[in-house]
Design a protein around this nucleic acid. Structure first.
Lengths: 226, 226
DNA sequence: AGTGCTCTTGCACACTGTTACAGAAACCGG
DNA sequence: CCGGTTTCTGTAACAGTGTGCAAGAGCACT
């Protein structure tokens, strides 16, 4: 692997023109367009008009490549504007941003999730969220637990959201609401049974659920002035 | 693929001795022991002292095989005893069961998650949870939203729990608490910063977080008697 | 010119899911 | 008993995947 600390399309080599950064960027493009599975060493090499071994020389393993891709993506979605008067609102704002940006870059998110590097992708947002918690009077272990609880909740929503999109055995057939079509249980009210058969509104459900978690960890705003 | 509705090691053919059920069961064993990636058609065939084509004849695609494996696993973890006096307690009890049984059969759970068939695996528990919600006075769309919210929360915890286990880029290196080691932010209290560097207690955090969500969807027990 | 370092290539290995094709064993009608 | 059909099994191959090894091509410095 290329161990030069910084990338400097050095130039001494054979025909150069290929930087580690270039490779990572192209890889990120491929992931964003074609999903996680579109990123294969051979395809990436072909895109760059190069052989696979060249990539290995520059970035190393596929794991290393993926890690770099995720880090690069992390920088991009780190920018956010936190709005809201109360601490709870500001925390919600960050949580919402995690949710939205993950949906916006779903392919990278899915990739990060697959290799267990989600935290790497979300670290900047974790920090932002911690800042708001801290500013809202939640410190130490309480802040950590609150942060984790909120992020797990968001992660759960993301898992479900991604699950509702194409890929996977049986296509749409093992969607929860589709599976409920065959359920017939006497001890459940028919209204309830019917409701199960249509999918929920994820966005509004996200709002209320995460709000509940946030409220249970962040104290209501103490009325200082007024 | 073998299209006989039920499996009845039919008998007309050559040397039988191999049932679709046998294959699925063996596959389930392999997954539970060696994880999702240990289940390859060739290895499975080798375990059964048979060639791959035989498996294809019996069960079809790998997708079909995986689906069968998951269905089989679903039956096993469907047994549960719901305890608790209040509706909230009983709902919590089921949610806890989802969490525990997913952890107990983590490999199958991970497999189901990979192919997007989690709902298939958890359908029986979804039904049980819905029953408790319904009995607790939550019907129709409210029940659906509550069910989904709770399950998403549990799913989030599972994702994080599985993430803390070996596999994936960088091993333990991109664990959240490990990543926080390099963070230095002035606007965050040092106590908070320090707390972030040690992982949370998932079990207790699960309890409080899910409890918060449950409480926000299930009304407190109306005091009927007393 | 020669030596050394950086980059790039070609080829190969082991592994995956999947299938086309060919062959044995059992039953069934004659 | 013979031929045919169904039911299984086996061989070999195809198109992919990630990855490592040996060798070469170009530039810089001596």
């Amino acid at each position: 692997m290329n161990t030069t600390t910084t990338s400097e399309a050095s130039g001494t080599g054979r025909r150069a023109g290929l930087d580690r950064e270039d490779i990572v960027e192209r890889a990120l493009d491929m992931v964003e367009q074609g999903g996680a599975e579109a990123l294969t060493m051979r395809k990436l090499a072909a895109e760059l008009a190069v052989t696979t071994t060249t990539i290995y020389w520059h970035v190393g393993d596929r794991d290393a490549l993926v890690a770099s891709v995720i880090e690069r993506a992390a920088h991009r979605q780190a920018e956010l504007m936190v709005e809201g008067a109360t601490a709870r609102d500001r925390v919600m704002c960050v949580a919402r941003h995690v949710w939205r940006s993950a949906l916006a870059h779903r392919n990278v998110t899915a990739l990060a999730h697959q290799v267990g590097a989600t935290s790497l992708l979300e670290l900047p947002l974790e920090i932002a969220l911690t800042r708001e918690l801290d500013a809202g009077g939640v410190h130490g272990e309480a802040a950590r637990d609150g942060l984790r609880a909120i992020l797990m909740c968001v992660a759960g929503f993301l898992v479900v959201a991604f699950r509702s999109e194409g890929r996977g055995t049986g296509g749409q057939r093992n969607q929860p609401h589709a599976l409920w079509a065959d359920v017939d249980d006497d001890s459940i009210a028919s209204v309830t049974l019917a409701a199960m058969r249509i999918p929920p509104e994820l966005d509004t459900l996200f709002e209320t659920t995460v709000r509940a978690v946030v409220d249970s960890f962040v104290p209501a705003a103490t009325v200082t002035s007024h």
